[in-house]
């Protein structure tokens, strides 16, 4: 079949990608603006980056966000992997459908509801058990794990669904006990999916504003909470600088991962070609 694409489709692609990237590019360009009025060009300057470097609240918030995101991603990955494993591999067990429902529900739940309900839980727990004592990093992490483990579950479950179950059966058949099969066969094979799940959980937590706003306490402002409070006061060039830094980190990471994947894919294709050729 030909690769012909109509003029219309090409125009829409150009338009679509421009739509996706112009806002991000404008953020980056204006971060180098001398002027305090973000959108009025006043000459090139890196002073907002210097200001960012000395902005203690931003640095503290970023560090807090980083710690929460790391803990969240780790917790969510462990819980999500267990749930994904149970759903994909344990066949029909009692109350499986409840577990399946509970793991997909956070995906469709509006964040305001999740945030509100988590806060009310923490308040009630504090009344009854005197724990958690106030709200802060612990409550934020618990809330984040609860909503982001659903994503890890989906990633792991769908990876396991495409994983040939006879691989695990073969290991059992060759004398490995179930727990060992998981660590020797299943885990190494689904590791890329688990890592993807970890990164996803990290990003969700790192970005989250709404749920965090409900369950955070005084002195536990994560980066999005801080940015949001600054935004409500209007645009400010140091947010642009911060945005640029964050966008660059993500871009470099994604592009590097993409290149690595492409290179390995190429090498693998070559291997397969050789194997086929070698057999003839």
């Amino acid at each position: 079949m030909n690769q012909r694409r109509s003029f219309f489709v090409l125009t829409m692609m150009v338009f679509g990608f421009a739509f996706l990237y112009i806002p991000i590019l404008s953020l980056i360009v204006y971060s180098f603006n001398e002027s305090r009025l973000v959108t009025v060009w006043g000459g090139f300057s890196t002073k907002w980056y210097v200001a960012l470097l000395h902005n203690e609240p931003v640095k503290q918030a970023a560090w807090l966000s980083f710690r929460i995101a790391t803990m969240n991603a780790t917790g969510a990955t462990i819980l999500g992997t267990l749930a994904g494993l149970a759903l994909a591999r344990f066949g029909r067990f009692r109350s499986r459908s409840l577990l399946a429902g509970l793991t997909t529900a956070p995906l469709v739940m509006p964040e305001v509801i999740t945030g509100l309900s988590m806060l009310l839980l923490f308040v009630a727990m504090e009344q009854v058990f005197h724990w958690p004592d106030g709200r802060g990093i612990t409550t934020i992490t618990i809330a984040h794990i609860t909503f982001s483990m659903a994503y890890v579950t989906v990633v792991v479950q769908s990876r396991l669904a495409t994983l040939d179950e006879s691989l695990e059966e073969a290991a059992l058949d060759l004398g490995a006990r179930p727990a060992k099969v998981f660590f020797l066969i299943t885990l190494p094979i689904i590791m890329p999916a688990i890592l993807a799940g970890w990164l996803l959980a990290f990003t969700l937590s790192w970005d989250d504003l709404v749920i965090t706003s409900f369950v955070n306490g005084p002195g536990s402002s994560t980066l999005p909470v801080l940015i949001f409070s600054k935004m409500r006061l209007g645009v400010s060039p140091d947010i642009n600088a911060l945005a640029t830094v964050l966008v660059l980190i993500v871009t470099v990471g994604i592009v590097a991962a993409g290149l690595l994947m492409a290179r390995q894919q190429k090498r693998r294709d070559l291997d397969v070609q050789q194997a086929v050729a070698g057999n003839q």
Partner: peptide, 24 residues
């Protein structure tokens, strides 16, 4: 793959900041 990556990339960058960009 490159084009798909370009579609995905904004998803990984902060939602809040992308909305913020529109204010400007």
């Amino acid at each position: 793959n490159l084009l798909l990556l370009l579609v995905m990339l904004p998803f990984w960058t902060s939602f809040l900041l992308r909305v913020y960009a529109w204010i400007g």
